[in-house]
Write a protein that binds this DNA or RNA. Structure first.
Lengths: 226, 226
DNA sequence: CGCGACGTTGAGAGGTTTCAACGGATGTGG
DNA sequence: CCACATCCGTTGAAACCTCTCAACGTCGCG
């Protein structure tokens, strides 16, 4: 059994107290007119836990959320990263198969699943939006599978491209730690770090800060991504 | 770039001519009352191709289907294996992102997506079945991600458990080649082969034939699966 | 200043791939 | 019916990649 990852290095902190966020509406599906008031979470604060009943759907207003799961051997698997406008909390069953934590100070808005479900029964627009949401999630997960069968370089390059595609800009501010990236890509923190400095050495990227990445040569990255 | 996989070793054959299958209804969602007459495909015959418009949904009546995709570097990625009762052809967009081929002589039944979509607008039962179908697909893909971050042994063990869970019996007849398994798990054919013989050596399985696998010690496999 | 969380770098061990050869099963043609 | 070609699966040895263990550097903060 190879492939080490974090075993709960994160200390769940509840330092940040909930506050009301003043942020323009993110580009979410129309059904989120039904959303309640914004909720705020501090860094590493848990939005919901694995195994809890999945009562709500969430949309990120500001900040960033990761979903994760601890395997029985202690390794951690990241489900996904959600940026402003993204919706998470969707589940096939009635309870969450991942837990969700805020990567940074984050505000989300919630909607009751039950309300959505009952609405979907008569309102086909709501139903099709739910379907579309699930389909998008499926597509992302399939893209992830495509990454995971590749080499470390390709995985990291693919990850950078994915992050860049959300920002449009060529400079990315990563909200997650190296450990998060490693657990997301099924690599170790050291391999991620080494790969990034390798990319810097071949001038594909620049690393002004460890959390800030400038894409110098996108086509080179795309080539590495194969 | 590590990790070699097949580059189109299969020769698409159209030897088998379509015939009518006489098989009891598989345990599929109720909406498949709308299904057309059974269609038959021969070994390695293509059901649909990547990039083609996704006009139909399919359900496997007998046989087995794999979905696959050729990456631009020639490697092949298997999307999934579909057994009798399974439904495939679901797509987020309007065209297939994978191609589908019969692994063995196979019969499927089809339904027009457009018909389903228009029906879903007024019939919320149909809509929720579609949603459930997509959710199941999502869950399977997430399970796949969980496998892919693990070691070769764990992947193969997990694959065997997955196959066994569909058969209930402790003896599995694999419809797919070693290469298919390798491409599904992101490993090489040699690693898959070696891992299987290793499992045989530790008496976790028996291999009467290369395609036939007897599970001798499920808990040992589950442990390897971690 | 010193501590702790985070990130980088190095060296060695281990796992998986690569390249190669072999054996068995299947199907075809003589 | 047998010889042969082909496909599929297995096995071996060496190269390569990633992990593991360890040390060091940086940053923010009490």
């Amino acid at each position: 059994m190879q492939m080490h990852s974090t075993a709960l290095r994160e200390s769940p902190s509840r330092k940040t107290k909930p506050r009301i966020a003043v942020v323009p509406d993110a580009p979410v599906a129309g059904l989120f007119n039904l959303m309640g008031a914004p909720l705020a979470f501090g860094r590493n604060e848990e939005v919901y836990g694995e195994g809890e009943p999945a009562e709500y759907l969430y949309t990120v207003v500001s900040g960033c959320v990761r979903t994760s799961k601890i395997l029985n051997d202690g390794r951690r698997q990241i489900g996904a990263f959600y940026m402003p406008g993204d919706i998470f909390g969707l589940e096939a069953g009635n309870e969450h198969s991942f837990s969700a934590e805020a990567l940074a100070p984050t505000t989300v808005r919630i909607i009751k699943r039950a309300a959505l479900a009952s609405r979907a029964v008569c309102d086909s627009a709501t139903a099709s939006q739910l379907l579309a949401l699930t389909a998008v999630e499926l597509q992302r997960t399939q893209a992830r599978v495509l990454l995971l069968i590749k080499s470390a370089q390709e995985r990291v390059a693919g990850f950078l491209m994915e992050m860049a595609s959300r920002n449009a800009a060529s400079e990315i501010e990563l909200p997650m730690s190296r450990q998060d990236i490693a657990d997301y890509l099924g690599l170790t923190i050291e391999t991620v770090s080494r790969t990034l400095t390798h990319f810097e050495n071949i001038c594909a990227i620049a690393l002004p800060t460890s959390r800030r990445i400038v894409l110098r040569n996108r086509s080179a990255l795309a080539r590495l991504n194969a």
